[in-house]
């Protein structure tokens, strides 16, 4: 059952190519991420899926020699347009990484508030409310509400990753990019994050990179299969997994390579 379309949250890559110097690692990829859905990006290591993700919030261009051709459209507007400030853009597209990256010198509260404060213009009360809301959405509030002023490093790995999700959610982004968010977590931590994806897609558009096929099957509405920098196939997750159109896709999901 398709949720109502909300163009504001819609993200689309059009003929996107990502390069390091002269070497293309993502080649001419066009893909639509529908609003209020989870799209999984799968593929073997080195297929360019993480690089592709980093093009969506203009992080790729920060890497040494990294540049991009093609466009990415958020709410119909080109995020690579000359008038777009990448710093402002990244406040609209939250990102969570493979390993939890809490800021070690900050408290739990300050970690979540970090993205709000860098924007400025909010009162203490507003920041308090936004921090609580973000922690609730990341399903961490009940575990940390009594120790908001403690160091973020006191949390377990799984809690730290949910803290990072809360930190990404606090500035009210439209899109959430997750780059193998459970790669360093135990099964219980992984399950919490996957449940979170289901809850969060009602408010955000989510793109999750994973090399865990079961995870892609569990959390996503759509799945995109990347191989050697090409987008081989994209479709509804159950269709892609049960009757893939491309032979390469079938070979990968049945475990014949990768």
């Amino acid at each position: 059952m398709a949720p109502p379309a909300d163009a504001r949250l819609q993200l689309e890559a059009v003929r996107l190519t990502a390069l390091y110097g002269r070497r293309a690692v993502v080649k001419d990829v066009s893909i639509l991420f529908p609003a209020h859905s989870v799209t999984a990006v799968i593929g073997p290591s080195g297929c360019g899926k993480s690089t592709f993700l980093r093009c969506l919030n203009r992080m790729h261009e920060l890497s040494e020699g990294g540049w991009v051709t093609g466009t990415v459209l958020l709410d119909g507007a080109d995020v690579y347009d000359a008038g777009v400030d990448p710093v402002q853009l990244r406040r609209r597209i939250g990102m969570v990484f493979q390993r939890p990256t809490p800021f070690p010198t900050m408290t739990i509260y300050d970690n979540v508030a970090a993205g709000l404060r860098v924007n400025g213009g909010r009162s203490r009360g507003e920041v308090d409310a936004a921090v609580e809301q973000a922690l609730r959405r990341a399903a961490l509030w009940d575990e940390v509400k009594d120790r908001l002023k403690k160091s973020a490093l006191d949390l377990s790995g799984g809690q730290q990753q949910r803290l990072c999700i809360a930190r990404a959610l606090a500035p009210e982004p439209e899109v959430l990019l997750l780059d193998e968010p459970t790669a360093s977590l135990d099964p219980a931590g992984t399950q919490r994050i996957e449940e979170l994806c289901h809850e969060l897609k009602h408010r955000y558009t989510i793109v999750i990179v994973t090399h865990n096929l079961q995870q892609a099957g569990r959390v996503s509405d759509y799945t995109a299969f990347f191989y050697l920098g090409d987008l081989v196939e994209v479709g509804r997750t159950e269709e892609l997994f049960t009757k893939p159109a491309q032979e390469q896709t079938e070979a990968y999901i049945t475990g014949r390579f990768g």
């Binding site: 920060l62 990244r90 990102m95 990484f97 990256t101 800021f103 970090a114 860098v118 990404a168």
Partner: peptide
């Protein structure tokens, strides 16, 4: 990774 996290947050 800490730099990246901050930059991705709009720092």
């Amino acid at each position: 990774s800490l730099r990246e996290a901050a930059l991705a947050l709009g720092y």
